[in-house]
Structures are given as C-alpha cells and as structure tokens.
Nucleic acid binder design. Structure first.
Lengths: 152, 152
DNA sequence: GGCCTTCTCGTCTTTTTCGATCAAGACGCT
DNA sequence: AGCGTCTTGATCGAAAAAGACGAGAAGGCC
C-alpha cells in the first residue's frame, strides 16, 4: 500500500485544523508553512476536502478553512476517501467485484480481508485523536508492537 | 491502498504454480491463458519472481516455471514484495522514517499501525492456502464479516 | 546437427497518475 | 474601491504502469 503525498498532506492539513479549534479560520498559507506543504498543491487539496464536505471555507480578511464537523467525528479514512476515493482497490475496481478463474477463486476473500484490516485502523482513528496525541487503544496495541517497526 | 495489476498478476501466477504442484514445470503461456493475463507482461513478472528467488525456470521442451519453495512457505506478502518492493510506503519512504512537525507528530504511529494490520493479513496467507481454498481462521474471521463486504 | 520449444533480456510505446505550478476570477469584508 | 482570501481550471514535467516486440540463448528430442 502506498500512502501518497496527496493523502498525507490532506490528513496533516486536517490535523492542523483540528488543533486550531473552530474558533477562527486558518488560511491555506498558514497550514502550508506550518506543515511544510506546497501552497498551490494544498489549495487544490483543500478544495477537494471542501467539496467532500470535510471543511468549510471562508474568503476575505481573516478567512480560511475550518472543519465542517467536530474533529472527533472525522476519521483518517474520511479524509483519505475525500481526496483519493476508495481506500482499497484491486486493479482500479472494488475488491468484491474481482473475479478469478479456477484455482484463484478464493483470492477476493484475501483482498476483502486486507481492506477490512485497513479499515480497522483508519476508520477508528480520528483527527482529534492524532492532534491530541491520544490514539485509541486498539491502535496503540498495533503501534507498540516492536515487530511493527522492523523493516521487511 | 491500491493493488496493482502487476501485483495481482504475480499472485495469481504463483497460485497457479502452487496448484500445479512441483511435478512438472508450467509454461508462461499456460499460466497466461488459464488466468487471462497478457503473456508479454507476465513474462516480465515471472522474470522478477525468478530474480527474487520465488520461482525457478526451465527452458526447452516441457520447460516452464515452478515454485522455488514449498507453496505453504510462500506468503502473499512474499510475492508482492518481489514485484513491488515494500508493502507499505509513505510518500515513497518507510513509514517509520516519516517525520512531522508539531501537531502531527503522532501520525507515523498511525501509518505503522496500518502497515502492521496489512501485514497481519498478507504475511499469514500462503499461496497454498489460496490454491487449496483453505484460508487461515484469522483471515476467515475478517472475510466472513458482512461489514467487510459493504462498499464505503 | 537440425529443429522446436521455452525462457531471457533489453527496448520501445502508450497511457495514466503524481506532484506541482500558474493565472485569472470570484468573493467577503472594511 | 481595495485588500486578502479562496476557487477553478489549465498546464506541465516526471515518473510509473501496462503492455508489445524482437533477437537471442538454452534445453530437449529426433
């Protein structure tokens, strides 16, 4: 699995907004500089997040972006889906639609299991969790396993 | 996460070899026709699997490919790594090396958890499992969950 | 040796995606 | 009106993905 720059930028921007609170809007430029993200690209991403209903925007002086929902209601999965579409695809299609001849007939079940375990992480971590540095227990169990940190 | 055509072809080819047993070699063309994979592309893939030590090749009449190890010793992860490199990357690098300023500092732990749960599937399913249609219990638990089959 | 089969390996298109830049326009507020 | 934003679309280069192709080397069989 590849986490693209775009998805990563989107998540970081969302975290930044979560940390800022909903008091006032944060400009794209502020997010760009504080997270080290190319401004033009970030604007494009924020636009997609807005269309997907993840953020609201406000133009003019003191304008910027703010979250459309409470940060504890927005998961990493929501953000990734907003900018990249489905979390997991097999050759561009849905895993459950893949069909295989003969001996590979059980393969879709493996892809489904992959997607499910992926969801088990990204659908259970909210951007508020990350911003407050308090991840759910189920995530900590995974991340605290020393095995998880070795390079394969 | 995107499962590329290449990775998918590689896995299916490996399953085909696992199903054929190690008695005689299977030609690239046979695999291509029985799995519906473009022959030229498949040859490229098989070549990479050979270099990675996953398969052995035999030229000449009745030549072809066979697995280099017992199929129950080869996991899906092995095959994917052989043709695509690391299972999970963040912007082209290792998840554990990603660094984030300020409020996003906990994000790498999320990526690590993602990778770990991904490994929990693909490192535990062997190509023998798929070829014999007998997946490990831990995978069946995931794949049998009706939630896992709904499109999000 | 001759012939057929099959892998081997490098090259070459074509297409798509990724990451990023730029510019013009629309909007909101003072 | 004027400034600071967001908005939108065009464009671009680099890279990767997917596949096509052909010449050649190796193995087996008669």
């Amino acid at each position: 699995m590849k986490i693209s720059a775009k998805a990563e930028y989107a998540v970081r921007a969302a975290i930044e907004l979560a940390a800022a609170g909903n008091g006032r809007a944060v400009s794209a430029e502020r997010i760009a500089t504080s997270q080290g993200i190319p401004l033009n690209f970030l604007e494009h991403i924020l636009s997609e997040l807005r269309i997907a209903g993840m953020v609201r925007s406000q133009r003019g002086t003191d304008g910027g972006y703010r979250l459309a929902r409470e940060p504890q209601e927005i998961t990493i999965a929501d953000i990734i889906r907003a900018v990249e579409g489905p979390l997991a695809t097999v050759r561009g299609g849905k895993p459950e639609e893949a069909e295989y001849p003969g001996v590979a007939s059980q393969l879709p079940r493996v892809w489904i299991a992959v997607r499910q375990n992926l969801r088990n992480v990204v659908e259970h971590v909210t951007i508020a969790d990350v911003a407050s540095a308090r991840l759910p227990d189920s995530i900590n169990v995974l991340a605290d396993d020393p095995e998880a940190w070795v390079t394969r």
